[in-house]
Simulated assay, not measured.
Amino acid sequence: MELEVRHLRALCAIADAGSLHKAARQLGVSQPSLTTQLRRIERALDGELFLRERTGCRPTPFGRTILGRARPLLAEMAALVAEARALSQGPRLRIGSTASRALPGWLRRLHRRLPDTETDLMVDVSANALLRMTASGRLDVAFVHEVEGSPLRVPAGLELRVLVEREPQFVSMSRDHPAAARAVVELRDLAADRWTVDPSVDGEWDGLRRVLAGAGLDPPLLHADYHTAASLIASGEAVAPCQPTSGLREDMAIRPLSGDPLAVRLLLATRPGVHAQVFDGVYEDLRAAYREAALETPPYRAWLRRNASPLLAA
């Protein structure tokens, strides 16, 4: 078996994710398929690359050596592909983002600002993955969320600009949940509920667990992707943290938490080589789009007024 770029990419994904399950989701393959591929790679290299533990995978000393050689190769290959595409396709802006309702307005503004530039968009649940792609040249900019208390692993060389220093995370629940009748919800109002989180969202599980533990709560946690979580919430099976800009639904209620214990920092990152003037324009368009999305959401608009947010005067 000869090693290919996809094999190196798989090894790096496992190391970065810390588990075969998370790496498989990021790569878009099944976990059994990735496990089989890893075994073949280890046989080809005649050595164990990862220690399989109850909590996940971590590289062996031999694995760290291989990863140290693989990462520069992948970065060079990504940069080569990016440069080739740029030369053949003309002006192109490659954007990465975690989920956000600001995206449509952001793209609309960018198309007006840069009418001759082709815009690509990649949405990923992993902020760390988007930052790595930006550092390697596969993306030009990335709009990401950093969960409070769980710092992102920012590759060297990236320029970061803060969009919102502390965005409160609200809670979503079924429309007939008793707490839905309140304008602001206390964590103790949700003491009897199960919470659902997507474990592939960097920092979300740890951040929620810390806040609940700090409030003396230890509820059962359900791990589910966003689409499954929405069904669980609407049916009353669980509650979940959510972005304050989340769209309203007839079968769900979105409410702020008293004291805003859950929060994220919103960041825009760019790689070296992106012209400063272009980055400035991209940032200003994102800021305007985020403000638009924030003011269109009644619960968040009310929160902004109560807290005299600068967004109201922007």
Results as ranks from 00 to 15, higher is better:
V162Q: 10
V164Y: 08
V164M: 11
V164N: 13
V164C: 07
E165M: 11
R166H: 07
E167C: 02
P168E: 11
P168I: 12
P168R: 14
Q169A: 06
Q169V: 07
Q169T: 01
F170V: 04
M173K: 14
M173L: 15
M173Y: 06
M173D: 09
S174M: 05
S174D: 06
R175K: 15
R175N: 00
D176A: 13
D176Q: 14
H177N: 05
P178G: 05
A181T: 07
A181F: 04
A181C: 00
A181Y: 01
A183V: 02
V184E: 07
V184Y: 05
V184F: 04
V185A: 09
R188V: 09
L190V: 01
L190S: 00
L190W: 08
A191R: 15
A191S: 15
A191D: 00
A191W: 01
A192W: 11
A192K: 11
D193G: 02
R194A: 06
W195V: 02
T196G: 06
T196L: 03
D198N: 13
P199S: 13
P199W: 08
V201G: 00
E204H: 06
E204N: 00
E204G: 02
W205V: 08
W205A: 05
D206T: 12
G207A: 11
G207K: 02
L208I: 07
R209G: 02
R209L: 04
R209D: 03
R209V: 08
V211F: 09
L212W: 06
L212D: 03
A213Q: 11
A213C: 04
A213H: 14
G214E: 10
A215K: 03
L217K: 11
D218S: 14
P219L: 11
L221Y: 03
L222I: 15
L222R: 07
H227K: 08
H227M: 00
H227Q: 13
A229D: 00
A229H: 01
A230H: 03
S231G: 15
L232A: 01
I233M: 03
